[in-house]
Computed example of a mutant assay.
Amino acid sequence: MEHAFVNASAASDWRNILAERGINTQDFDSLLRKPTLSGNNFDQQLIDLKEFVATVEKTGSVKSGGGISWSVGLASNYAKRGKVGQAILGSKTLGTAFNRLVKFYPLIQDRTDVSLEMGEDFTTLGYRILDPDIWPRTEDALYTLGVFSSFIKTAAPTAWETVDILIEADKNVVKKDLTNEVCANVVYEAETNGIRFPTKILSNPIGLLPPVENDILNYLNRLLVEKRRYLPVSEKTRQAIFQGLSRGHVTQDHVAKTLGLSRRTLRRKLAAEEVSYQAILDECRMRAASLEFKISPNQSLSEMALKLGYSEHSTFSRAFMRWAGIAPQQFRKLH
């Protein structure tokens, strides 16, 4: 599996804000000194996502930095995210800003699912890293949701008292009271990290930057096409499966449709990479299972099996045994 990357300006935000507050910046200095990569046809500098999240987790969890991840997110300058930042901050309404955020987020950070699920009364802006091996990631979630919440607080400052913050991890795993950090109701063991807010505020004006010209939006659309073309079909399939696991959308037909392919074409392209859909699905399910044991230690095997698309937990247990070499109950005790 290829490395995942994130826009280096995220690490710069951390470094600058920590320096302003007199907190040691050594870890982020080291991260930023490493050779950065210019992504294929991207106008940005990139750093390794796994290393970035590990650095955020380390910094955010230290005693002297209580609440720092959320506050860094709130204070971050999204204009530093290049043309993507300009497009988001130059939106006329909060709804347009969030739709552009969802659409163009792959240009900011790899292997990540940002979604906007609109309901009549409430809407959820979700954020989840699709790589189960990048764990822990609670501080990264708080940082990113802090960034997203700054848009809500700008467009609808009085709506914050009605907001819920969603955290994918179990409260016992987080080991601290996040309510005091985010000043909102916190829901643990959610399907995704996210912010649930009143749908009506999506029409509120935001206008943090002047409106962007169509040529910038067209340019970003071209970059998205180029990035998707660059990814191997096997990696696209993994990401589609991880996106769909919590929603029950992991059939081959659904994944093929998500990728804009027929089922036959998907099979042919995967065969050209010497891998099958079933092999990728099994791999994703087992990697997701190992994450579930960490973030939801009290979840029953039956619940986990259902979440991963198995009709019976016995089928899941046998598959896990083949993958890990030990029974899921034993794996849980070890981790």
Rank of each mutant, 00 (worst) to 15 (best):
A169N: 11
D133H: 12
N298Y: 14
D121F: 07
L107R: 10
Q330C: 00
A184W: 03
I295G: 05
A54G: 14
F293D: 09
E168D: 07
G66T: 15
A8S: 15
I23T: 08
I68R: 12
A319Y: 00
P136I: 00
P136A: 05
N16L: 13
S64A: 15
V84N: 13
A256Y: 01
V250G: 00
A184Y: 03
V84E: 13
P297E: 07
K153S: 05
T25D: 05
L178Y: 02
T251K: 09
Y310N: 06
G65D: 13
L32G: 09
L116I: 04
E181K: 07
I167V: 09
E139H: 06
K333A: 07
P136S: 02
A184T: 03
N298R: 14
I195D: 03
L74Y: 06
D133E: 13
V163F: 10
Q329F: 08
I152F: 00
S71D: 14
T179A: 05
D282Y: 07
L281D: 04
R247S: 10
W70E: 02
R229N: 10
I23C: 07
K307N: 14
K103V: 08
S290N: 11
V6N: 03
D215T: 14
T237L: 03
A169D: 15
S71K: 15
S300N: 08
L259E: 06
L281I: 04
I195K: 01
M118Y: 09
F293Y: 09
G39P: 11
D13K: 07
Q329W: 08
L231Q: 08
S91P: 06
L231D: 04
V233N: 00
K34V: 03
S71W: 05
S203N: 14
D121S: 14
T124G: 04
A279C: 01
A190K: 02
G82K: 13
Q278H: 13
L266T: 01
G126E: 01
D133C: 02
S71N: 15
K294W: 02
A190H: 06
Y188E: 03
V225A: 10
Q44H: 13
W70P: 06
I241D: 04
P210E: 11
A256Q: 05
L46F: 09
D164T: 00
I23A: 13
A141N: 00
W14R: 02
A10L: 15
A87L: 01
L259F: 10
G126F: 01
Q329I: 12
G309L: 08
S302V: 13
A271Q: 14
R228F: 11
Q330I: 15
E189K: 11
